[in-house]
Simulated scan of single mutants.
Amino acid sequence: MDMLDFSLTILVLVLLILVLVLLISTIVTTMVWPFSSRPRWNPGGRHCYITGGSSGLGLSLAILLTKRGADVSIVARNEANLQKALKQLEAARINPNQVLKAYSFSLGTQEAAADALDAACVPHGGRTPDAVFLCAGKSTPGFFIEQTEESMRKGMDETYWLAAWSAMAATKRMVHTRSKGKIVFISSVLGYFGMIGYSTYSPGKHAIRGLAETLRQELLLYSVEVQIYLPVTMYSPGYEEENKSKPELVLKIEESDSGLTPEKAAEGLYEGMQRGDFHITDTLIANVFRTSTRGASPFGSSVLKDLLFSLIGTIALPFWRKDVDRQVVGHRKAHLEYLASKGILAVE
């Protein structure tokens, strides 16, 4: 047996051992979790405020929480979509006392975000929401070379600032009213790494993670819990829209990705909240990136599993990166021809 065969054999054995230990850890965690001393968050009778609640993850989460007895307020810009979403919430209610409301607001400024939150508190006697979910956001993929100052600023507006202004409104209100609630940010697996085509999106998702990391610690002062969900691709109306501007190369790189439906993503988010995770991830690839870029963030519900995911990332991610780099370099000629056709690249 030569050294290459020997190395491959060792690698396969290590991976098999990792899979076995991961399986055992998952079984043990599943058995122990229901008996954990940590109280599970119960949305029944609580007021849940959801931005971006008229479609995608926001709507799926709103329906899930409604089915569990929560009072739900959804906020979005499009009134027609909000009314359609509200009908779905009404169909999901489990008791006649649930308060289900929809509010049309643009959340792009601090003032508008505060006004929207204040409006949602009125039917509850002014009481601050028990949980605020920041699902609003948008992605418009494209090459960095084609971006403008306007598109770059818009990218941050539609990712980071939409979350930041509502988080600020919620924080100020929770602290002022001495409410011990929770704020849940929605980032993306692209908040762990960057990828070609997402120069107007990934920076905002990284920024959301940075804000959540900061507030997790700062809001301990007020007994307000902060969590952040970082999902993989979601097959939502927003995903269909972003594919219209997504470069061919990016579509090619992503063609083997396995994504989530908004319903499945909502379930993953909810289960992570029940576990009490700070960083909530619910797929293998997201877990690998989470543990490989954890920094000083708290471990998940199983330290052993996190260490195993991190080890898998140490082995596998360099191969993944090299494969993506290879595809990018292989597309160089076609890309330069594309830029020349757009007048961006000088013709030789």
Rank of each mutant, 00 (worst) to 15 (best):
D2R: 03
D5I: 14
S7G: 07
I10N: 07
I10E: 10
I10M: 15
V12H: 13
L15M: 12
L16V: 12
V28K: 09
T30I: 12
T30R: 10
W33S: 10
S36Q: 11
S37A: 09
R38H: 11
R40C: 13
P43K: 06
R46C: 13
H47A: 02
I50L: 03
T51P: 03
G53D: 01
L59N: 00
S60N: 07
L61A: 05
L65H: 01
T66V: 05
R68S: 11
G69K: 06
N78W: 00
N78I: 00
N81S: 12
Q83Y: 04
L86H: 01
Q88W: 04
Q88T: 06
R93T: 07
P96Y: 01
Q98M: 10
Y103G: 03
L107K: 03
A114Q: 08
V122W: 02
R127Q: 14
T128A: 12
D130N: 15
A131N: 14
L134K: 01
G137C: 10
S139W: 03
E150S: 15
K154G: 11
M156Q: 06
D157Q: 11
A163C: 07
W165P: 02
A167V: 04
A170C: 10
R173W: 02
V175F: 08
H176M: 15
S179R: 13
K182E: 15
F185I: 07
L190D: 14
F193K: 13
I196V: 11
I196K: 04
T200H: 07
S202K: 03
S202M: 04
P203L: 15
K205E: 01
K205A: 00
G210D: 12
G210S: 08
T214R: 02
T214L: 13
R216D: 09
Q217V: 14
E218C: 00
L219V: 03
Y222P: 02
S223Y: 06
S223G: 01
V224Q: 02
E225G: 02
Q227V: 06
Q227F: 10
P231S: 03
E240A: 09
E240W: 04
E241L: 05
E241H: 02
E242L: 04
K244L: 12
S245T: 11
K246Y: 00
K246R: 13
E248M: 09
I253V: 09
E254N: 10
E254C: 05
S256A: 14
S256C: 07
S256I: 08
G259P: 02
M273E: 02
D282K: 01
T283L: 03
L284Y: 09
I285V: 09
I285S: 08
N287E: 08
V288C: 03
F289V: 14
S302R: 10
L307F: 14
F309D: 15
A316I: 13
A316V: 14
F319H: 14
K322R: 12
K322D: 15
D323F: 12
D323E: 14
R326E: 12
Q327Y: 11
V328A: 06
V328P: 05
V329F: 04
H331G: 03
H331V: 07
L345S: 05
A346K: 12
V347L: 15
E348M: 03
